[in-house]
């Protein structure tokens, strides 16, 4: 089984966001970068499928700056066979531009499965996976939390409001992964050592211009200073009065 996983280098979820001098992006100084948590589920799933099949290859593809080599090495340390970095100066805000570059790389790869995290925790775009599928003309199920494969057919479950959708699809396919699909492994020391010697192909990549222009990144509006209504059950009547009369939400 040959599987590709699209991964992204993102700022860790504990990051306190400061805005860069240009007013349009994150100030990266002192920020810790990690493999996007939703992509970890995709990497883990790919490794398990290859292990179950007993043979095959798992390839990660990342679009990002030179520093994304570290992110690829993290995936290689988990057990991925090789990595490709589509190197750009800056990851564009337009998800379609990212999807076009990834699709061009994946097009002739002969993959049975292409996995992506359902979204990245930085731009919250929720779109690159299904766009890659459309560009490649492949069937796609997004945000899956359960997967069964049998021969050339798969069944995946995805959460929808108030329920779980059970989707059947043929391979090859693109799937995007949600929390709950699996528990990603921690790389063992042996894996970390081996990762240093695994192939990592760096391809300088020219991106399409795209149709989304970033005007500004701003901090969210400050919330009004809150107040402690009181202590213990004695504060409940006052809380209810405030919710009713001041906030008008009851």
């Amino acid at each position: 089984m040959k599987i590709a996983v699209c991964i992204k280098r993102v700022a860790d979820s504990e990051t306190r966001v400061k805005i860069a001098a240009d007013g349009k992006a994150l100030d990266e100084a002192g920020v810790k970068f990690v493999l996007n948590p939703y992509d970890e589920f995709a990497v883990e799933e790919a490794l398990r499928r290859k292990e179950q099949a007993g043979s095959g290859e798992v390839v990660v593809v990342a679009l990002g700056p030179a520093a994304a080599q570290e992110t690829i090495r993290a995936a290689l340390a988990m057990g991925v066979d090789r990595g490709v970095l589509l190197q750009v100066d800056r990851i564009p805000a337009d998800g379609l531009v990212v999807a076009q570059a990834l699709a061009a790389e994946l097009k002739d790869g002969g993959y049975d499965l292409i996995l992506c995290g359902k979204m990245a925790i930085d731009d919250y775009n929720h779109q690159v996976g299904p766009m890659v599928a459309e560009l490649l003309g492949l069937p796609c199920v997004t945000s899956i939390a359960h997967l069964e494969l049998q021969g050339n057919t798969g069944v995946a479950e995805r959460e929808v409001e108030g329920g779980i959708e059970v989707c059947e699809f043929p391979l090859p396919a693109v799937l995007t992964t949600d929390k709950g699909l699996n528990e990603p492994r921690y790389p063992a020391l042996k894996g970390i050592m081996a990762a240093k010697k695994k192939p990592l192909d760096i391809k300088p990549t020219a991106l399409a211009v795209g149709g989304l222009e970033v005007l500004a990144m701003t901090p969210p509006p400050d919330r009004k200073d809150g107040r402690i209504v009181g202590e213990g059950v004695a504060a409940i009547p006052e809380l209810l009065r405030l919710l009713r009369e001041e906030a008008k939400v009851l």
Partner: peptide, 12 residues
């Protein structure tokens, strides 16, 4: 919202 609402991105 980006970064789960830690910042807002205005795009054209």
């Amino acid at each position: 919202p980006v970064y789960a609402g830690k910042a807002l991105l205005k795009v054209k």
